[in-house]
Computed example of a mutant assay.
Amino acid sequence: MGLSNKIIALLNFLAILSSIAIITLGIWLASKSDNLCNQYLKWPVLVLGILLLLVSASGFVGAFWYKKGFLRFYLFCMAILIILLLVLLVFAFDVTRPDGSYPVPGRAYKEYRLDGFSSWLRGHVVSSGNWRKIRECLSDSDNCSEMNGEYVLAEQFFVAHLSPIQSGCCKPPTACGFTYSSPTVWINPANPAADTDCYLWGNDPAQLCYNCNACKAGLLGDLRSEWRKANVILIVVVVVLIWVYIIACCALRNVQTEELFSRYKEGWA
């Protein structure tokens, strides 16, 4: 195996490692508590990671055993995958750019407004058709119940750094004026605020604020936080793959040049 082929094989081994990083990222996104109730957002990452793994493996085989067909297939498919990853990256940055969180005076946690997030997330993640299943899944999870063992006094709860889902789904909005009894039990004021979320709250563990806009916004807040972290990994992977692709193209061109030069010498021999 020539030097150029060795370089291409090594580069494709790096691409295989990058694909494993993307697949791991997809599994991590799927394992998060909110994504367990909203699974479809993980599929683009997992599918691209698996496709990248297959394409990189074909490039490695083509370079190691010098199969021109595999190498051409690899370069063509790798270009398409890099473009798809760039599209996914730009899309993820765009839909997670708006931040619907806002600070609450006297509280360590933030609360969330549904209209503070992108229209795409609102329309595709928490639309009325999707929310029923998501609500049932959140109600069956331990996102809220686990807080009862962590916080006893109101002072402990108010300085806690709650997750967006815990802040939006497990308690009533602060503006409603409810009185704290426990993290998931609150005393209704005589004259609650006009916000519809104030009337949707219930101390029943199966109800809480799962029908509230604040809960939907909390889910989007968790998704935004996780995807912003995932974007960093995607950026690194895309940069690595672009360099791998450029160097692989140069190495393949050198292989073809060497072949032409060898044939030229044989013709004169």
Rank of each mutant, 00 (worst) to 15 (best):
G69H: 07
I50M: 08
H161A: 11
W227P: 02
A251P: 05
T96F: 02
D140G: 03
V236R: 14
N143D: 12
S262M: 03
L86I: 05
S118A: 10
G100C: 10
G218P: 05
H161Q: 06
D115I: 10
T179F: 03
Y109C: 04
I187R: 13
A15T: 07
L85G: 07
I246F: 12
P192M: 03
I23L: 04
L75K: 01
L114I: 05
V255T: 08
A92V: 11
G59K: 08
W65H: 07
A175M: 11
L84G: 02
G129M: 06
E226G: 14
W131V: 02
F117A: 06
C144S: 12
S167H: 05
Q256N: 15
L51W: 03
K216W: 07
I246G: 07
R263E: 12
L53E: 12
P172T: 01
K67N: 12
G62M: 08
S181T: 13
C170T: 07
S145C: 15
A175F: 14
N5V: 00
L114M: 09
A269P: 03
V236C: 13
V185G: 13
L223N: 03
C215I: 08
M147D: 06
S118Y: 06
G62R: 14
V236F: 14
L220G: 12
D142G: 15
I246Q: 09
S262L: 11
E155D: 14
P192F: 10
S19T: 06
G123Q: 10
A63D: 06
S31K: 13
L241W: 12
R107G: 02
L25V: 04
L17M: 08
G100I: 01
I80E: 04
L48C: 01
